[in-house]
Write a protein that binds this DNA or RNA. Structure first.
Lengths: 219, 219, 219, 219
DNA sequence: GATGAATGAGCCTTCATTCAT
DNA sequence: GATGAATGAAGGCTCATTCAT
């Protein structure tokens, strides 16, 4: 096979890209468009334009707009899940390191870009009225919540803390989501560094033997 | 009383109502509609139907759909602000009581209904792409944040806590917003009681001399 | 009857004006509105606002918008007719004086204001598609055309001109209407003085023994 | 030729047409619709129906109704201009022939159809309240006026006429527009032949050495 | 008589979807 | 595979008309 035979367009893309490449291209453009225009004003025309592709192609790769949006949310969810699972995997066995990994993972540069945060909040805003989204998010949220509770339980037992581990996990989970919201709503006041510091402040308050506002206390 | 003098409609509403009555009626219907259908699928026809009025009336009282939505957000913001300001006013001088009042106010039955929570999240989702919304929310958020920081600073100084009061305030603020999100997203898992307990868990972690997970420690 | 009993409004108008006064007030406002906004964008709300009256009053005095517009056109037509008939009446027996009177009457300040000219052209533009307007204008046009032809015939016979009087009348009629159009379309280039000079230029060309570009040649 | 290769619709049009074809088709339909329904009652639905196309297509090719109307006026103006310029070009060097060409061009069958005349008057009626239309028409009117004055000046100098050439040009211009108006307003009384005869009557009156009511006097 | 809230038909416009090329 | 013209349903908005006050 001679690759050079494939006609190239001015932008260097082959005219016929693989199915998955195109799909990902359109999903990325969808995230960007939601981030820029909001969920309600996201049109297929705009998504296509941002992707530099033709209008009709979307309905070829995704059957409907709903499908495109669902697949976009699915991509975001998988990316999010992969991110914290990988972080946890790299964290080692200590519960404090695991929680630190989880907290830091939330502000990882790959998943916590401005566009993606905005897209997330947009999806959250629509989720209530769209059972499809809820059905997709529910199990993933559950998985995360369970893992977080587990770690909190380990920390509580390690540190002999008085609180209930579920309550601690709930505080942390809510706070992480709240920080994302704040990042979206008040661009100027928050930086990722501040966000992380805030998260560790909560960890330090809940688990003072394991954390300071700067991060986990080394063994 | 002769009922026939004032002809009522089937639903008991007079055919003509005062300007403010109708505006509020339509704003309430907008909140309900956003709550039920989501921001993107909120149409004037649906808002009108929910209010039992004709859709032409909306453009009579509000000039555009945008205006209706802005005014609805404004109403929600003012209601939210009035709520915590009143709560604070009734709380007395002790910082712990003030923070408790603030935390409880967030889950007050008037402002924290399912419909209103959903509407809030929907507006948050759109805010990023709508400078108008941001301009409206910014100052109100700021006012709340400042008051919260003040109270945290008082608690820190009273209790001799080691953390920075701004960090504590940030944790609490993010957590409160996060809890609202969770309330919207996972209807079943959270109740208002659980929400309040979660909030006080955070307060107890941050200010252990002043709070337990059950609430403020009496003087 | 004590006149002072009648409540006066700030603008000095009695609250209850006579039927005809109100009607004329609304017709004048209609002319002004058409002049300012064009026929297509003339709304009852705007007419009412310009008249300083309430919206609903129009449907009381005129039954429909169509009726208001018809009555407005009728007023313009009668005013136009009265104007040239009076001018002719005051002109004396000489055909040249009569034609001069007719030409000058067309640029009389009462009927040839900017607003009225514009309204006329707007009505002309709609006439083709509105049989009602045509039915109203037809007879009046006819009457004018006949009188003009009569005068032209007298001039032709007096001066022994070679042309057919109907042709001359047609030239004059078309030119007068054309000048109104030009007055509407090119505000800057035409003044009423230029308009009149143009009209007499045509008269002088057609009837050189009776007219110069400055006006009729005295007996 | 295999007809089955290109599937045709019942009306013989291909389903897809080139951009310019469709645009022209819609412009023609707009002229027809204005001619039939008047400016104020011209709706996109009607324009689309007359063209045998869907109304959504209009917003695809023109962005707004305003744009469609502007482009329609532009087409009429260019067509009008092309017509008299071509006529003048074919007329040869003699001023009398040039004026004759100009007068006849105004009643040319291509540009002086009933529909187009009506559309013109409709646009004139709206022009006053639409700066866009005025801005478009102004320069074209000017160009025509200048050329007409030039020819009149040549005739005056050739024939040693006493009148000012600008006055003559103004008479002719106004009369031509007035005849169009008359053609629109009194369909029955005027024919194109009568219109032309009227125009030459004016020319003969102004330039008796060059014209009779029947046309230019040959060299 | 007079007002202005209320209604609803009809318009322009947007946009997801289809489909001939 | 890819394009973009074409369709039509549905939305926001205007506005003539009605009617309770």
């Amino acid at each position: 096979m001679d690759e050079t035979v494939k006609p190239k367009r001015p932008d260097g893309q082959p005219r016929k890209a693989s199915r998955d490449t195109r799909r990902q291209q359109l999903i990325n453009s969808t995230i960007a468009t939601i981030g820029r225009c909001g969920y309600a004003k996201t049109t297929l025309t705009e998504v296509a334009r941002n992707a530099g592709l033709s209008h009709g192609l979307i309905n070829f790769h995704f059957q409907t707009k709903e499908q495109l949006l669902s697949d976009t949310l699915l991509f975001l969810m998988n990316e999010y899940r992969d991110n914290w699972i990988r972080a946890l995997h790299e964290a080692g066995p200590r519960p404090a390191d695991q929680l630190a990994a989880l907290l830091r993972a939330d502000f990882n540069e790959v998943i916590c870009t401005e566009e993606k945060r905005t897209a997330w909040v947009a999806f959250w805003g629509e989720a209530q009225s769209r059972p499809v989204y809820q059905a997709m998010c529910g199990p993933m949220d559950q998985e995360y919540a369970l893992r977080l509770e587990e770690i909190c339980a380990n920390l509580v037992s390690e540190g002999g803390y008085a609180m209930k581990s579920e309550d601690a996990a709930r505080v942390l989970r809510a706070m992480l989501e709240g920080i994302w919201l704040e990042l979206v709503r008040s661009v100027s006041r928050y930086s990722l560094a501040v966000a992380e510091r805030t998260a560790f402040t909560a960890a330090a308050a809940l688990f003072p033997k394991h954390f300071t506002a700067g991060g986990p206390i080394p063994a």
